[in-house]
Computed example of a mutant assay.
Amino acid sequence: MTPLLSRIGTAALLLAVFVPAALWAPAWLWGGLMAGVVGMAAYEWARLSHFHTLSAGGYAVLLTLCTLALPYGLAGNWPIFQAVLIALAIVFWLLVVPLWLLGRWQAPHAFVRAVIGGVVLLPTWAALLYLHARGPAVLLGVIAVVWIADTAAYFSGRLFGRHKLAPAISPGKTWEGVAGAFVAVALYAVALSLWGDMPLRPLLFMVSGLLYLSVLGDLFESWIKRVSGMKDSGASLPGHGGVLDRIDALTSTLPIATGMLLWLEHSA
């Protein structure tokens, strides 16, 4: 099987599992599934950080247990903790990560890497729970921006890519890929405006912001892999690498999209 067919086949299988879960899974099952995703991504993050196998497994178990226990253990305080995680992610992605990439920080210390892994993964998990609770249309509508952007960037970059976006961080990414992604998400915004009777200008602003964040998340993981000397975060998803490779753009977009929705809810 060619790499492209392998990539398409894996994506189709993931969609066949994820979309029905998003549409019909009860909250407890959705929470369990997302805890599993966090656990696998945490293990891959630990391996990228060169933790020993036993330490990587312990780190993954710790984050998985946190995701399973926190919503129930915090009870009525869970929404406050969820908002704190989202606020932490907003600061991290809008302020820390751009400086990180510009300065090409390596953060080799295991403790720092462990903390950063929590900052990357736990707000993403909190956002997935929040968006799922708001309904499948909200969850899938936000994630679709990332999926569309990723697919368009992949194919437009392969067909037209000439000018490197950030060669010192990720040599495979091009400005042509970003341009293709922008056209695709802009068309998605137009479709939402026409079919969902929503104003176009705010939608274009939103999807453009999420596109920027998705590129940022992708570049951040690419830099971590480059520093670690690894091509992929894992090998569990043929054609895509590991779980972290598949969700890298979601780690930056979902928490901030959730933050926007929280702000709209509390300002209404």
Rank of each mutant, 00 (worst) to 15 (best):
L194Q: 10
L4Y: 01
D150L: 08
L5Q: 08
G76S: 14
G180H: 13
T151H: 08
Y212I: 12
K164L: 07
P20V: 00
V178Q: 05
L192G: 14
W147R: 02
V190C: 05
T124Y: 11
L33C: 11
G209P: 11
K231E: 07
P171Y: 07
A127R: 05
S156M: 06
L203W: 09
T124A: 14
G242V: 11
A22R: 06
V37K: 14
L121N: 05
A133F: 00
G172Q: 10
P171H: 05
I169G: 14
V97H: 08
L192F: 00
R104S: 11
F81P: 06
P167F: 04
K173W: 10
R134N: 08
A35D: 01
M206I: 13
I80L: 15
G180P: 02
A179P: 00
G196T: 10
A11V: 15
G161L: 05
A11G: 15
K164N: 12
A191P: 06
S193I: 02
A127I: 03
A69K: 02
L165E: 02
A87S: 08
Y43G: 06
P26K: 10
A191K: 02
H163V: 12
G234N: 06
A89W: 04
L192V: 03
G36D: 02
L62P: 11
W125F: 15
T64Y: 12
W93N: 09
G58S: 00
A149F: 03
L204G: 06
L210F: 13
G73V: 09
G241E: 11
Y43F: 14
F81C: 10
A126L: 03
S267N: 08
S193N: 05
R158S: 06
A69Q: 13
L165K: 06
E176N: 08
M260N: 02
V17K: 06
A110I: 13
L129P: 09
L13N: 00
V19K: 14
Y130K: 10
